[in-house]
Design a protein around this nucleic acid. Structure first.
Lengths: 142, 142
DNA sequence: TTCTACTTGCAAGTCGTTTGCATTTGTGAT
DNA sequence: ATCACAAATGCAAACGACTTGCAAGTAGAA
């Protein structure tokens, strides 16, 4: 879990805190997430880094960062997998036409409602994660 | 959109209402969804139907049923795509270990909260769909 | 500086899904 | 009933996202 604004934090410290060996690849991947403060996928990263990092390595890095909690997966109903820095809890509104994304904050009311769902549940007594994404047409596409 | 309990409705009427030619394949696919009242994917359908329907046809049928609104896609963080009869609005709690699924109803409070999100949004003035799925360990796996 | 375990690149493989094409089938008109 | 034709299906090949095995490179501790 990060606890600073994505734009300016110490990449190396983040890696060390998560017991990673510091490599140019890992620094570059984190930097790409910081520069583009929105969900991105493997293909985007490869393009942005100009093919300097191998595709397979990008996938391995993303998957590893997700396990350690640096990144979180986001379901955007696209054909490939998107990740995001796991720094603050929010969700997305996604334009189904142009792909435009707007964030919205998780709030206490939503949390309360989800807790109530779990209380009412017969099969579950706690939940660890949830996805909540809205889909529609943005003002431009509409 | 269906408006009857999934267990007992007229498959042929459903197809006709949606301007489909009635074929054994389509009837069998709908029936599989009715019998197994939960999200299922292409592989499951092929197995249940004993390979009587070609894999490619199953994919084509699912995709077509989704477009016409008979089915809805469900994001369950699995490696393949799951669908569900689009008959009543609900969400899921999914066990990340064994895959057990429990439904919970969409309620007015959740709808209100989501409407508020849209009101606060700068880029969107309405949404068409949303996903809301909870993930955790069920009582058995916990 | 050296050693070792971890990381990376490359190429091949996997898996879910899609597509092109030839054949079959449902349905409305005859 | 039968016909004609558009639509649906099966088959095999292709596709795209992702994974894996292995050999070579590299970070970091000693």
């Amino acid at each position: 879990m990060l606890n600073k604004k994505p734009q300016n934090f110490d990449f190396k410290k983040l890696l060390k805190d998560n017991k990673y060996i510091i490599t140019p690849t890992r620094l570059a991947v984190i930097e790409t997430f910081c520069k583009n403060n929105r969900p991105i996928g493997a293909e985007f990263i490869c393009k942005k880094l100009n093919g300097k990092i191998n595709e397979a390595t990008v996938y391995r890095t993303l998957s590893s960062f997700e396990k350690s909690g640096i990144l979180r997966k986001v379901d955007l109903r696209k054909d490939s997998t998107y990740f995001e820095l796991n720094n603050d809890h929010h969700h997305h509104i996604v334009c189904t036409k142009c792909g435009e994304i707007e964030d919205f904050k998780e709030n206490i009311e939503i949390e309360k409602l989800l807790k109530k769902v779990v209380v009412d549940s017969k099969k579950f007594k706690s939940i660890e994660e949830h996805s909540l994404e809205l889909f529609g047409l943005c003002r431009v596409c509409n």
